[in-house]
């Protein structure tokens, strides 16, 4: 365990050093991300000028939703982007260099893609949103907020497991960019209040691609729209879905690895 923590720390340090190489893009991307967020906020402002309530959501709770959505993207893109491009590592035989190490190859494949840049990009956005939330006087329960942070973090792990499982299909199909693209296209759903969507889609977003735990649920809880017992139930459900995905992911990985054919050399 200590060794793994040390390793994660080392990988983080490496990503910091690599990130410094791209200072120029960092500035531009930060500005771009901020503009994008500003547009999103403006969009919701316009909607809530016409109606004060939208399927149980208010402008205030949507602002909180945007905060968690930024946080989710920041964590995912910083630490788990490797799970999104894993199919290429498998397809190009780069997995070889991770397979000959005494550490779980999945950790190395994901860890060596740590990238600190997205976290820095979204730092400005997160701070701006927090400021805005306080300034407009959104009804935030700060203890709930802290608990919700935990849910967002686990939601990232969950989404990452779904991603890697899709990417493992490369072991059978030789590539799985289609699956990967599809999962990637679901990513923007994080930004939307998912309880406003049709029930079928909500089920999918709870069990199959569990994105309701990414921002929707945390935002509802933080603004007091759902109670603590309801939140607890949701958390238990999330952990159960997480365990199911973990076992599924692990089984697919092991079967895939036995079929791995490498490439080149």
């Amino acid at each position: 365990m200590r060794r793994y923590l040390r390793l994660v720390w080392r990988l983080t340090v490496m990503s910091l050093k690599a990130g410094i190489e791209y200072r120029g893009t960092l500035m531009i991307m930060t500005v771009w991300q901020f503009c994008f967020l500003a547009l999103t906020v403006l969009f919701w402002k316009v909607i809530f000028l016409r109606t004060s309530q939208f399927a149980g959501w208010t402008f205030h709770s949507v602002l909180v939703l945007q905060f968690f959505s930024q946080l989710f993207s920041a964590i995912f893109n910083t630490f788990f982007l490797g799970s999104h491009v894993l199919w290429r590592v498998i397809n190009q035989g780069k997995l070889d260099s991770f397979l000959v190490r005494p550490v779980d190859p999945r950790l190395l494949a994901i860890g060596t893609r740590f990238n600190i840049v997205p976290a820095i990009e979204r730092l400005v956005n997160g701070a701006a949103l927090l400021g805005l939330i306080v300034w407009v006087g959104a009804p935030v329960d700060w203890l709930n907020f802290v608990l919700a942070l935990g849910m967002v973090t686990i939601a990232v792990l969950l989404f990452s497991m779904v991603q890697v499982t899709g990417n493992y299909l490369t072991f059978w199909w030789g590539s799985s960019d289609a699956v990967d693209e599809f999962l990637d296209s679901l990513f923007p759903f994080v930004r939307y209040p998912l309880t406003t969507m049709p029930p079928g889609l909500q089920m999918v977003m709870t069990f199959v691609v569990p994105l309701v735990f990414a921002a929707t649920m945390p935002a509802l809880f933080t603004t007091g729209a759902i109670s603590r017992p309801a939140f607890l139930a949701a958390s238990v459900l999330m952990v159960a879905v997480g365990c199911a995905w973990w076992f599924l992911q692990d089984a697919v990985w092991k079967r895939g690895l036995a079929r791995y054919e490498s490439a080149g050399g």
Partner: peptide, 23 residues
């Protein structure tokens, strides 16, 4: 593997060495 690098392309060599130390 002579035709594949096991080192990290964008980083100083020493960084790869430090990673292997921890691995």
């Amino acid at each position: 593997f002579g035709q594949k690098t096991l080192l990290f392309w964008d980083l100083a060599v020493i960084e790869s060495m430090l990673l292997f130390r921890d691995v």
